[in-house]
């Protein structure tokens, strides 16, 4: 059964249509890439799933219900920008999450921090960009959620940090959970994905298994993307 479903989902901002009549069925046990150029609707889709926006038309369902307080308990969301109170130290941030989310695994998070030699008493704002991203990812992935929404988790970090983030996503794989990753760095993420969704001007241009796409086109997903979106 699909854990994230869109039925005729439409979102308009005034005259601008960000998502236009989208249908999607995303199943648990998959790591799915959400790709498309800037302004194609990736973040809008993720924000609709997280109830930060409401549909203009159609609906989006998480585990069969409309987004709200109930779905936030089973959705772990990593926004595309810093979202944590920066004055807090890392350990306090983890405690904050532990208080907030029933499914947060404090031991797991602390172990991951230790493995990276991140000092738990350092304030978040004193960390480098790469380390901030890692801490945010650790917090997001330390929840036992049914759906993980990762909005640009590897943008703007160095290749080693990128590698760490992708391995953390693989290491946390669960056959009961869906991981949806929005990105424009397709080449890096490609081997990690089961499926890929191409968004183009608010439409689903393509939704396919990544290996099937490679076989069908004789191209990497990244190369095929460049072909489809050639300017």
């Amino acid at each position: 059964m699909a854990v994230l479903e869109c039925r005729h989902l439409t979102k308009r901002y005034g005259k601008l249509t960000a998502l236009d009549n989208i249908d999607l069925l995303l199943e648990p046990g998959r790591i799915i890439g959400l790709v498309g150029p800037n302004g194609s609707g990736k973040t809008t889709l993720i924000k609709l799933a997280q109830h930060l926006l409401t549909p203009t038309d159609g609906e989006i369902l998480i585990d069969g219900i409309r987004p709200g307080a109930q779905t936030k308990a089973i959705v772990s969301y990593l926004p595309d920008r810093d979202f944590l109170p920066a004055w807090m130290d890392v350990e306090s941030l983890l405690r904050f999450y532990e208080d907030f989310y029933e499914d947060f695994d404090m031991n797991k998070a602390m172990q991951m921090l230790q493995a990276l030699n991140i000092e738990p008493r350092r304030p978040f704002k004193a960390l480098s960009k790469g380390t901030k991203e890692k801490v945010q990812l650790i917090m997001t992935m330390s929840r036992g959620a049914k759906v993980y929404l990762l909005d640009e988790p590897i943008a703007g970090v160095d290749p080693a940090a990128r590698d760490y983030i992708l391995r953390t996503i693989i290491g946390n794989y669960s056959e009961n959970a869906l991981v949806l990753i929005s990105t424009h760095l397709i080449a890096d993420v490609e081997p990690v994905l089961d499926e890929v969704i191409f968004l183009k001007q608010g439409h689903v241009e393509l939704h396919e298994n990544t290996d099937a796409l490679r076989e069908r086109t004789g191209m990497s997903v990244d190369n095929y993307f460049r072909e489809v979106y050639r300017c």
């Binding site: 046990g29 998959r30 790591i31 590698d163 992708l166 391995r167 693989i170 290491g171 794989y173 081997p191 990690v192 994905l193 089961d194 290996d211």
Partner: peptide, 17 residues
Amino acid sequence: VRELALEAGVNPNTMQR
């Protein structure tokens, strides 16, 4: 599967296949 998927940096379902 999980261990080798992690080493290879690939999706566990792909390794499973």
